[in-house]
Amino acid sequence: MSVLKLENVSKSFKRFKAVDYMSFSLDEGKIYGFIGPNGAGKSTTINMIAGLLKATSGTITILNEDVSNKNIRKYLGFSSEFPVFYNDMGCLDFLIYMGTLCGMSYKEAYKEALYLIDRLALSSFENKKVSSFSTGMKKKVGLAAAIIHHPKLILLDEPTANLDPDSRLEIIEIIKELASDNKTILISSHVLSELETFIDNVLIIQNGKLVLDASMEEVQRTSDNATLIINSKDQRLRAFLDHKAYIYTLNDGVYRVKVDNDAKSSIKKYIVENDIDFKELYDENMSLNDLYESITKGERHETDHS
């Protein structure tokens, strides 16, 4: 079931087109990584989904209802990159206020706020003013405020930025728990090595356009730039790689060959046919960072040529 659907959504700020005819949809219970260079249009897109910005054209629907419908926003949770709080409110009061604004009763909101405060290890700060919190703690409270009302769609902008390693793991655990509870999560982040460990799908945006929308499995299956790792002392293999002019590095008998799928097949075929002795032979999956670089740099080269 599609929880969020964007159809030909554009957003212009005067003459600048921040988002250009973007279309994608998010399925229930999955974690989506939303990545792209600075200024690509990620935050603009997230803000449009959250209802903070109005799309210049196109439609955004959450659970088949237009995002402008106020009632649909009770199914939406949002935590911005730099969460903001009321200076006069303590952590517990703030979370209760956020919960009751989403239609929860005071009792429900109170109970849920206490649970989240405990879950995020903020118990000793529950009555302290959020404005006095560290950046990392503010992030946690921002996340708690986004999920207190059990939304079906959660938008998280850089949820782990400026957090210490323990807090990062804590937040990632919570995100995974939310997904297992059938919530759909869209995460914008620049920490790709971290993101690839828990996202199901990736959306890459460049110059306001969506350039990739795929599952992580799909990405790894179809990627033709993976690295082939061969651990072999056989000199015939080196001669073959040199002869074919493949790019590789050799370190203590371990070859890391960066080739496309066809070349990979050709190397494997050569090893089998010539009975090359090897200890290990496997494909090293493409990292999200490699994929991101190949797409965004490719785009940049195309732009340069044009």
């Binding site: 959250a50 903070l52 106020k70 926003r73 903001v84 009321y86 604004l101 989403c102 239609g103 405020a145």
Partner: peptide, 17 residues
Amino acid sequence: KSGTVKLLFIKPLSRKE
């Protein structure tokens, strides 16, 4: 200016309300 209005705009309330 501080952005706290965002906290209200993302809630199930119309801006008029």
